[in-house]
Design a protein around this nucleic acid. Sequence first.
DNA 1: AAAATTAGATACCGATCGGTGCAGAAGAAG
DNA 2: CTTCTTCTGCACCGATCGGTATCTAATTTT
Lengths: 178, 178
Amino acid sequence: MTVFWEQGYEGASLTDLTSAMGVTRKSMYAAFGNKETLFRKALERYTEGPAAYAARALEKPSAREVATAFLVGAVSTTTRPGFPVGCLGVQGSLAAGDSGRVAQDALIAWREDGRARLRHRFQQAIDTGDLPADADAELLARYVMTVANGIAVQAASGASRSELQQVADAALRNWPPV
Amino acid sequence: MTVFWEQGYEGASLTDLTSAMGVTRKSMYAAFGNKETLFRKALERYTEGPAAYAARALEKPSAREVATAFLVGAVSTTTRPGFPVGCLGVQGSLAAGDSGRVAQDALIAWREDGRARLRHRFQQAIDTGDLPADADAELLARYVMTVANGIAVQAASGASRSELQQVADAALRNWPPV
DNA sequence: AAAATTAGATACCGATCGGTGCAGAAGAAG
DNA sequence: CTTCTTCTGCACCGATCGGTATCTAATTTT
C-alpha cells in the first residue's frame, strides 16, 4: 500500500512491491494474481485504514461537523509522519499510459464513491432541516471533495500539516458556502 | 505537451511522443537531448499557453479579481474541449518512481512558483489597503492554489466545466476567507 | 515418519523502455 | 555537379518491465 501510495501505480515496480512486502514474486502472484488486483487490495486497505476518516466523518451529527471532520481527516492523513505524503486515491494514478488505465479508472470510481456518500449525507441534512432547504447537496459534496483533493496535491508538494489546517479552516469559515 | 498532459511523464513513451510530434526519435534527441528536457520544454509551452491565465490573473486590479480570474482560468483550462482534462502541472508527475522524480520535482517547483506569485500579489494588495491589514497573504495564496489544484483533480475525474464553475464560485463567495 | 503443500531463490520469458548508430534521401550552398 | 547538413527509416543497444517456470528447503498435514 505504501509503495503504491508513494510511487503511484505505474511507478511501483514488482521488485519494489515484493521487496517491501518481504515476499517473492511467486508468492505474490499466487496470492493476488496480478498487479492490478494487488493495487485494488491496497486501495481497500487504504480505505479501511488511512482513509477511514471519511466514513467516520459521515457519521457526524451535523453537516458542518461532517465537512469539518472530512477536511481535518484529509489534512491529517495526507501529512502523517511515517507515511507517504498526499493521498493514494489521488496520486495513485491521476494520469497514466495504457498500462495504468485500470488503476486510473479504479481511483476515479473511488473518488466518485466518496463524493456520492457526501452528497447523500448532505441531502439527508437538507431533508432534516440541518441545512437550508435551498442548499445544493451536489454542489456541497463537490466543494468539500475539491478542497480535499487540493489538500492532497498540496501535501504531495510538501505543504506542512499546520499550513493545510489553516487552508481547511479557511474553506470552512462560511459554511455552507451559499 | 498534450501527450505529457494526458498520460503523465512516466506514462508517455518515446514512441507516443515522437509519433504525436510527427518526428523521428533521432530528430527529437538532436533537438532536445533527452526526455527530461523535452518535458521541461513542454511545461514551458504549457505555462505560456494553456496556463497563461495565471499570469493574466495576477495583473487584475484587485485581490478579489485576481482570485476570481485565477480560479475561472483553472476551470476553463482543465475542461477545455479538444485538450486533455486536468492540469499538466498537477497530473504530469504527482507520484512517480525513480525515473519520474525529476519531472516530479520540476512540477513541485512549478506549483511553488505560482503560489509565490499569488502570495506576492496578495501582499501587495494588503500593502495598498485593497485587503485588510490583518489578512495573511501566505494563507490566501495557499487557499486559492489548493482550490485550483482540487479543481484540476476533479476535472481529471470527469467533472464538467459548469460543475467546477459552481465550485469556484462557492470558494470565492466569502472573499477574503478570514 | 511419510506425504503434501507452501515458500524461497533464481533464472528466464517476450515485450517495451530510453537512447544510439548507420545508411540513404532530400535540400541548400558553393 | 559536388559537398555538406539534416532529415527519415530502421535496426539495435543494455536495462527493465510484468509475469512464469523450475528446483529446492521448510513447514504442515495425516
